[in-house]
């Protein structure tokens, strides 16, 4: 097993606020990690640092064994890292199909025919074969998020990052997105998921990480973290979200 992502002593600040402090994380290929924690704990920032949407102040990040430096081609790096956002961020001026074909055509230079064939396969996989010609505004939140997942998968990434993918959804639409994510996990995709969906974490995660104030407080299997949390902060957090 190779380490796909390695974050060593990463420090990230927004002005005077230290969001990540000496943050260390290792992700194995094929691993499914769920990050939980109170808002403002730096969970999303971890994801955004991995795909370099946020520059870090110090420390280093390795991807697939290679250190990310100033010389790193960020586009080439991000192509390998799929990201799903809380607010979907679909391209509103493009149909579901075009949302999925856009990056493979523009970035990888794949022909329209090939890109569309792959996009149709991915949209079928997320259960949206009948919505390919619809614009994002004509889709429900759950459908939009599934298009967003297909869009990220179209670049054939090595890892998928999910930044609170169900937080902006109506409760009855959460299930369909989680189902898509579970199927993805079953396919063996390496995944890092920031979420408040504890049932998903229990079911899918190999490892659960509890973060607070920019640091990992504790981590372990879902059973370890959920049933036998060792730290007071974890206990307090779990108690809060279960009520």
């Amino acid at each position: 097993m190779n380490s796909l992502v390695e974050m060593k002593k990463v420090r990230k600040t927004f002005g005077a606020v230290e969001v990540l402090k000496d943050f260390n994380l290792q992700l194995q290929e094929g691993e499914r990690v769920v990050i939980i924690g109170p808002s403002g704990s730096g969970k999303s920032t971890v994801l955004r640092c991995i795909n370099q949407l946020e520059p870090i102040q110090s420390g280093c990040i390795h991807f697939a064994g290679e250190p990310v430096t100033r010389q790193t081609d960020l586009c080439a790096l991000r192509m390998q890292i799929g990201m799903v956002f809380q607010r979907f961020n679909l391209f509103p001026h493009k149909t579901a199909l075009e949302n999925v074909t856009e990056a493979p055509m523009v970035v990888k230079g794949i022909s329209r025919a090939t890109a569309e064939q792959e996009a149709l396969r991915l949209l079928a996989k997320v259960g949206l074969s009948d919505k390919t010609a619809n614009y994002p505004r004509e889709l429900s939140g759950g459908q939009q998020q599934r298009v967003a997942i297909a869009r990220a998968l179209a670049m054939n990434p090595k890892i998928m990052l999910f930044d609170e993918p169900t937080s902006a959804l109506d409760p009855e639409l959460v299930g369909e997105v989680l189902l898509t994510m579970k199927e993805l996990a079953e396919d063996g995709m390496t995944m890092v998921v920031v979420t408040h969906e504890m049932s998903f974490a229990r079911e899918v995660a190999d490892r659960v990480i509890f973060m607070d104030q920019g640091m990992i407080v504790e981590q372990g299997s879902p059973v370890e973290v959920f049933e036998r949390p060792r730290h007071e902060r974890t206990k307090a957090f779990l108690k809060r979200i279960h009520h």
């Binding site: 949407l53 960020l74 586009c75 991000r78 192509m79 961020n89 990056a103 970035v107 967003a148």
Partner: peptide, 13 residues
């Protein structure tokens, strides 16, 4: 929306 730039960059654009 700033998310549009982030989404496109996250896809490698």
């Amino acid at each position: 929306d700033k998310g549009q730039l982030e989404a496109s960059m996250s896809l490698g654009m």
